[in-house]
Amino acid sequence: MALDHARRFHRHGWEVHIADSIPCRLSGWSSSVTGTHSLRSPRHDARGFVADLNQAVTARGIDLLVPTCEEALHLSRHRTALPRELHVAVDEFDKLAALHSKWEFVRIARSNGMPTPASSRVRTLAQAREWARGRAVVVKPEFSRFGVHVRLYPHGITGDAPELPPLGDWVVQAFVAGDELCSYAIADRGRLLAHVIYRPAYRLARSSSYYFDPVRRPAIHDAVAAFVRGTGYSGQVSFDWIETCDGEALALECNPRATSGLHLFPFAADLPTALLGDGDLREPWPAKPKMIAALMTMAGLPAAVRNRRFGKWLRDFQRADDVISVPGDRLPPAGSIGDLASYSRLALLQRCSLREAATRDIEWDGEPLEALGA
């Protein structure tokens, strides 16, 4: 998302700087980027993170700060420690924290007319089993990302299911069969300024998608607009949906940050102005599918061959554009290889997965965060 934002800001005449607490060659090597800045981890060194940001903002005369992942929560929490004149594209922390919680989101969604599956908050598998009463359910940590630790029980929770690991509260939710959809939006003080809906057509297992197929669903658009209006939301916000066979769309969870729907907007769409809170609603339609071509080849192709769906894979590949390699900006793919090597080293040192190594420095799982500068 950082690379995509960088390219479109550059296209609209901005000077773009990238800052991160882990290697960011994928974005930093783009011809759209003027400079890169190293930050300390907001999760592990909040004061250092704020000091590094303030130094970069002051030295480079930064006007607008746009988060792309869970650093949005840390930026919101420490907003008062940053220059008052700096525009930070996030909402207030309490609102983001509630939406980041998969349990609190259900409450907020329902109070704003957004339909969700029946849900409950539990601590143990026994509590989840008692609530489910043999029904098909999904069990997931209250705070998680990219589908990590999510359990799917389409025939009810089995007798030999392992106990839930100690990750705090969990949410047990009625399993609803249907078509998975996602939406991405930009809002300002309750006004919807950009919106797109897409199908995550190819995934890494049940985790992140690498193929983004745009669709139109008026009911989802109206639900997002009502949610944004009812909460007075500002910033980027994304939702995961399930669409049943009769066309009903239910919201599963919320990500109060950027997601891959960003890729579906043409560079001509003035999203930088939307992030400043100006302009009318932007919707990319008709829109062409986008993909991460390297993953489509390395992960999607073998799976398609195994499942005898090569023809469909080929048609999908041919109708989509890559979001990493674009004409006139060819270094980011090489940068991604360098980043992968760095994440591998971090994963070995921290004894964690590559995915965890790439996000561990910015994650927030509901623990208390002292507000700096308040």
Rank of each mutant, 00 (worst) to 15 (best):
residue 315 R to F: 06
residue 248 E to K: 15
residue 300 G to P: 02
residue 270 D to L: 05
residue 251 A to Y: 00
residue 251 A to H: 00
residue 317 F to I: 02
residue 295 L to C: 12
residue 285 W to V: 07
residue 312 K to I: 11
residue 250 L to W: 06
residue 296 M to W: 03
residue 274 A to K: 11
residue 250 L to F: 13
residue 284 P to F: 02
residue 314 L to P: 03
residue 249 A to G: 05
residue 254 C to G: 04
residue 275 L to A: 11
residue 310 F to R: 14
residue 318 Q to L: 15
residue 282 R to N: 03
residue 300 G to R: 04
residue 269 A to M: 04
residue 315 R to Q: 12
residue 292 I to W: 08
residue 257 R to A: 01
residue 305 V to Q: 03
residue 286 P to Y: 09
residue 260 S to G: 09
residue 263 H to F: 14
residue 278 D to F: 14
residue 247 G to E: 09
residue 255 N to A: 11
residue 309 R to T: 12
residue 290 K to C: 11
residue 311 G to V: 12
residue 246 D to V: 06
residue 267 F to S: 11
residue 295 L to P: 00
residue 320 A to V: 01
residue 272 P to K: 03
residue 261 G to W: 00
residue 288 K to Y: 02
residue 301 L to K: 06
residue 319 R to M: 12
residue 293 A to C: 07
residue 279 G to T: 03
residue 315 R to Y: 02
residue 291 M to P: 00
residue 303 A to S: 12
residue 292 I to H: 08
residue 278 D to W: 14
residue 287 A to K: 06
residue 254 C to N: 13
residue 272 P to D: 13
residue 318 Q to I: 08
residue 255 N to Y: 11
residue 317 F to C: 08
residue 302 P to Q: 06
residue 257 R to T: 00
residue 278 D to G: 15
residue 288 K to V: 14
residue 315 R to T: 13
residue 275 L to G: 04
residue 260 S to K: 04
residue 258 A to S: 15
residue 261 G to D: 00
residue 313 W to R: 08
residue 316 D to K: 01
residue 288 K to L: 09
residue 262 L to P: 01
residue 246 D to T: 15
residue 307 N to H: 14
residue 313 W to L: 07
residue 275 L to E: 05
residue 304 A to K: 10
residue 298 M to R: 15
residue 272 P to V: 06
residue 250 L to D: 01
residue 266 P to F: 11
residue 301 L to F: 13
residue 255 N to W: 07
residue 311 G to M: 10
residue 280 D to H: 13
residue 248 E to I: 11
residue 281 L to C: 07
residue 284 P to G: 05
residue 308 R to I: 01
residue 294 A to P: 01
residue 262 L to C: 05
residue 288 K to G: 06
residue 256 P to T: 01
residue 268 A to D: 13
residue 281 L to R: 03
residue 311 G to C: 11
residue 285 W to G: 06
residue 256 P to E: 02
residue 295 L to S: 14
residue 295 L to H: 14
residue 300 G to L: 01
residue 293 A to H: 12
residue 309 R to E: 12
residue 298 M to W: 15
residue 291 M to L: 07
residue 286 P to E: 07
residue 253 E to P: 06
residue 297 T to P: 00
residue 292 I to T: 11
residue 267 F to N: 10
residue 273 T to V: 10
residue 304 A to T: 08
residue 294 A to W: 08
residue 322 D to R: 02
residue 319 R to P: 07
residue 267 F to W: 14
residue 259 T to N: 14
residue 279 G to F: 04
residue 260 S to H: 03
residue 298 M to E: 11
residue 273 T to I: 05
residue 249 A to C: 15
residue 312 K to A: 15
residue 285 W to P: 10
residue 313 W to I: 07
residue 288 K to I: 13
residue 253 E to D: 04
residue 267 F to E: 14
residue 258 A to H: 10
residue 258 A to T: 14
residue 299 A to D: 12
residue 310 F to W: 13
residue 277 G to E: 02
residue 312 K to M: 10
residue 313 W to K: 09
residue 310 F to L: 15
residue 250 L to H: 09
residue 302 P to L: 08
residue 300 G to T: 06
residue 276 L to E: 12
residue 284 P to Y: 03
residue 281 L to Y: 00
residue 249 A to I: 03
residue 302 P to M: 09
residue 288 K to F: 02
residue 282 R to I: 15
residue 257 R to W: 05
residue 274 A to I: 05
residue 259 T to S: 12
residue 253 E to H: 11
residue 250 L to K: 01
residue 257 R to D: 01
residue 296 M to E: 04
